[in-house]
Simulated assay, not measured.
Amino acid sequence: MKRLNNQRIAELHRFLEKSGLSETLLPELLDHLSCEAEERMWDGESLEEVLDSIQQKVDSETLKRLNLERKNLLAIHDSLTDIVFENRNKSYGAYALRKDYGGHVQRATLIGVGIFLLIFMLPQLYARLNTDPSPDEIGFEVEFSPLTIKPESKPKPPVADQAAAPKNVKTIRFLPPLILSDGLVPEEQVPPTVEAIGQSQIGTETQDGEEVFTELRIPPAEIVQRPSVVEIAPEEEKELLFAEQQPEFLGGQEELVRYLQKNLTYPGRAARAGIEGKVFVEFTVGADGKVKNARTVKGIGFGCDEEAIRVIQRMPDWRPGRQAGRPVAVRFTMPITFYLD
């Protein structure tokens, strides 16, 4: 196989160096082109033809594009730090800190995990090293053995000696009455007295013997507690402003006008001062029809207010108002007019 001499290789190196190839790409491309030239020379081509063909094929534009692609491929493998600090001052210190950042994070993670495991395992290590148990950690084992429980035999209560009945008890004849016909009625017998029955036992025959006194025990009477009487205060009479059936003066509205004209006296002070107007009097007609709680709502003074209240208080009983059929108290407001002829 024919080989290129050093002079021809130097020519190729200068040709590639003029294209601005990177230092990493130049040796690789020079080796590749030298091998291709030697193979073509082996096939019978002359050295000049091979070099001219290579220079035409590998022009400057192709070499620049190839150099750019080479840089892109190398950038993929470079770290982010190298890309950031490319063409910058790497001896400033920031480059070293950023380059060692991954190692610092790794060491910090390992130290943190170690401290966590140490804290987690510390109680168990302390328990293994400290073999003396504390009083609170001492356990007690309790064994239970089966027990046979027999019920206690209760002593039988002593049987009270029954009092021997007297052999000869005094009895008195007292039979229930029977309804018989006239022929079967025996001789009349006098019934025993209450005292005799109390000192003897009732029987079918009367015989002498020991007297028996029967003690009668009367149970105490139950004490019945009577419920205490609670006095209920009478409900206050509620005053309504309006009822289903309003109170009415006996005789109607005409009689009311006649009553006012007859009993109303014009005060002298108001007459001398020429005072005229209306006095509004508020009063209550109770459930019994009586007029009460009269007061002046709006007056004109000069004795007219007092005169209006006097006439209202001296009114006869009204017919009371009714609500749901029941008499109720109703509040009224009545205007009384004072005017001079």
Rank of each mutant, 00 (worst) to 15 (best):
Q201V: 08
K170N: 04
G203R: 00
E195G: 05
K156M: 09
P192H: 00
A196L: 12
P158M: 14
D182Q: 13
A196R: 14
K156Y: 07
P166Q: 04
T204M: 11
E210M: 13
P191G: 01
F174S: 05
P192S: 04
L184W: 06
D208V: 11
G183H: 12
T204Q: 07
I197V: 13
P158L: 15
Q199R: 15
V185L: 13
Q162M: 12
P177Q: 12
K167I: 07
P176Q: 08
P166C: 02
A163L: 08
G203E: 08
P176N: 07
I172T: 10
K170G: 02
T171F: 02
Q207C: 10
D208C: 06
T206C: 03
N168A: 10
A160M: 09
T204D: 05
E195P: 00
T204H: 12
I179F: 12
P155I: 10
D161T: 14
L184F: 09
I202P: 00
T204Y: 06
P177C: 05
T206H: 05
G203F: 03
E188L: 11
Q201H: 01
P192T: 01
L175D: 03
E205Q: 13
S181K: 13
E195Q: 15
L175T: 03
T206E: 13
P166F: 04
E210R: 10
P157G: 08
Q201M: 12
S200V: 02
F174L: 06
P177N: 06
V169K: 12
K156N: 10
E188R: 11
Q207D: 13
A160C: 04
Q162W: 08
N168M: 11
D208A: 10
E188Y: 12
E187K: 13
L180N: 07
A163T: 05
R173M: 00
D182M: 03
E205Y: 01
G209R: 08
V159I: 14
K167L: 11
K170Q: 15
G183F: 09
T204G: 02
G183Y: 07
V190P: 05
F174R: 01
Q207W: 00
P176F: 13
P166E: 06
D182C: 03
T193W: 01
A164C: 00
S181N: 14
D208K: 14
L184A: 14
S200R: 11
D161Q: 14
E205P: 01
N168H: 09
G198A: 15
G198V: 04
I202A: 02
L178E: 15
T171Q: 01
V190H: 00
P177Y: 00
S181D: 14
G183E: 15
P177D: 01
P158S: 12
L175A: 08
G209C: 04
T193A: 07
A160K: 10
Q162A: 15
R173S: 07
T171K: 05
A196G: 10
L175K: 04
P158Q: 14
D161L: 14
L175M: 06
T193Q: 02
R173G: 02
E188H: 12
V169N: 01
A163F: 08
P155A: 09
P176H: 08
N168S: 14
